[in-house]
Amino acid sequence: MSTATTTRTQKLTLIAILSAISFGLMLFPQVPIIPGASFLKLDFSIVPIIIAGYWIDISAAMWTVVLRTLLKLILANEGVNTYLGLPVNLVAVVVFSVIMLWVMPYVSSKNIGRSLLAILLATIGMTGSAVIMNWFVAVPLYAQFANFNIAKIIGLSRYFIAMVLPFNLIQGIVWGGVSLIVLSIVKPLQNKLTS
């Protein structure tokens, strides 16, 4: 998607501004999906990351992820919750964006099947990564540093089956759907970057 006529400065400024929007969308609106798991909230900060990927290239999407994470740490740090939750969120967002951009490199209203396949694979990939990150990183770290032992309090199988899996599956479908709708609406704007 990157073109020779898009200057390096334009890419830098666009990534910076999309990161600022992504950070804003991390804070509001947040939608709790799973009853009893108020810490699992759906946000829409993925959309500017996906936009960066399609308007510029995949590395721009990754820089947007890095920058919005730094903004979150600097401006809206929630202490232990941020330090332990952000790595899981970071991996989920990266996996989702990379699979979306890899399976569907161009947005086209003619190829609905490929769009749905991209959303499906991205959702499965993200859910898998979320399970792995929760299992090996978040659950042990929460138990160690927040005295919140999910295995004892909720039960690991219940936590994964009733919370992590449905949350990530719903999140992936909503992320993919919203991103595709927004991308198809703002597609004509892309010409501005190449003119």
Binding site: Q10, A16, L18, P29, V47, V178, V182
Partner: peptide, 26 residues
């Protein structure tokens, strides 16, 4: 789903403004 629908009219003007700001700044 309802909230996702509500967010789209918020995102479109934001991205239009973002692109214009980025190009002006560059």
């Amino acid at each position: 789903i309802k909230r996702a629908k509500a967010i789209i009219p918020l995102l479109i003007p934001l991205f239009i403004g973002a692109l214009q700001r980025a190009l002006d700044l560059a």
